[in-house]
């Protein structure tokens, strides 16, 4: 079958991506995972300045999931170029830089500075991080701001622009349409859900900042519903992400209407997941006489 995925004027050699924030800058997993299997590598968020990240602890397990409050800890634009890009130039996967910031100008700075780098395939615009005080989620919940920011970034780059959507809104399709109107080539949904745990012995929230972002299999149904609704509301490709731990979860996303998928939390748990997902896609396609990834969505009755 044909595993390629068309996004904007560019192509991914397979539909399997690794989600931003769970795969570092790629080199961390070089020894553990065959990157030839990864169609798209979404980098840890890049902001103009380095960010130390949030107070500790930053991670806690929840029923079938985990909460994180990393706070976009990253090396910043300059060290991304000097320390991380050289390795990324050598990976076979499409390198998609996850762009983040605390204000609109930060997004422009990152994209403008990196625009000429051949090693970068495209951008995932992080308008939905729940763990930063300004920017992030606040930007991503207002359709008009999403449209304007997407349109401004669209003017800065020829490369595919993917807007990452938050599920922390009343109607995710409104935000998806705003991104499409702004000229986005695709949307990825979903980012993490705002969540919290409380330590009853200490009578404190487990995370020092009270809330964090929920990921893992617990959010799978939320992601599926978002992809199902968004793929019926926009004409651009929808990239499904959220809670994939087993190959069947990935197939569910493709049937819901996803043009591609991202593995996130499962990267921490099962280094064999990528190979198993690809095999399951090919096997399912053979069984159901599907010739391309785009045809999966038509199977859903």
């Amino acid at each position: 079958m044909d595993l390629t995925v068309q996004i904007g004027r560019s192509e991914l050699y397979n539909p399997l991506g690794v989600a931003s924030g769970t795969f570092g800058y790629g080199s961390e997993y070089e020894k553990l995972i065959d990157l030839n299997r990864i169609g798209a590598l979404y980098t840890k968020a890049v902001t103009p300045e380095p960010r130390p990240g949030n107070e500790i602890p930053r991670i806690v397990e929840t029923p079938s999931g985990m909460l994180n409050s990393i706070g976009l800890a990253n090396v910043g634009l300059q060290r991304f170029i000097s320390d991380k890009l050289p390795f990324l130039k050598s990976v076979p996967s499409a390198v998609i830089v996850n762009v983040a910031g605390s204000e609109e100008r930060d997004y422009f700075t990152v994209v403008e500075t990196l625009a000429a780098e051949d090693a970068i395939w495209g951008w995932e615009i992080n308008l939905s991080c729940p763990n930063v005080k300004c920017g992030g989620l606040a930007l991503g919940t207002d359709p008009e701001q999403v449209r304007m920011l997407t349109a401004s970034l669209r003017r800065l780059t020829e490369k595919p622009v993917i807007v990452k959507l938050t599920p922390n809104v009343t109607d995710i399709t409104t935000i998806a349409r705003a991104a499409e109107d702004g000229g986005a080539d695709a949307v990825s949904c979903i980012n993490t859900l705002v969540g919290m745990l409380i330590d009853t012995d200490r009578q404190r929230t487990v995370l020092p900042g009270a809330t964090g972002g929920l990921s893992g299999p617990a959010v799978l149904p939320v992601g599926l519903a978002a992809v199902y609704r968004v793929s019926r509301a926009v004409r651009i490709p929808v990239i499904g992400v959220g809670g994939i731990l087993e190959p069947d979860h990935a197939l569910q996303y493709l049937l819901a209407g996803a043009a591609a998928i991202q593995i996130g939390t499962a990267n921490f748990i099962d280094p064999s997941i990528h190979q198993r997902v690809l095999e399951a896609i090919e096997q399912y396609a053979a069984q159901h006489e599907v010739r391309s990834i785009a045809e999966f969505g038509r199977l859903l009755r």
Binding site: G24, E28, I59, M66, N68
Partner: peptide, 11 residues
């Protein structure tokens, strides 16, 4: 507490 244990997640 660890997430990835290989240096990727900053957890």
């Amino acid at each position: 507490t660890m997430g990835c244990a290989v240096g990727a997640c900053m957890g």
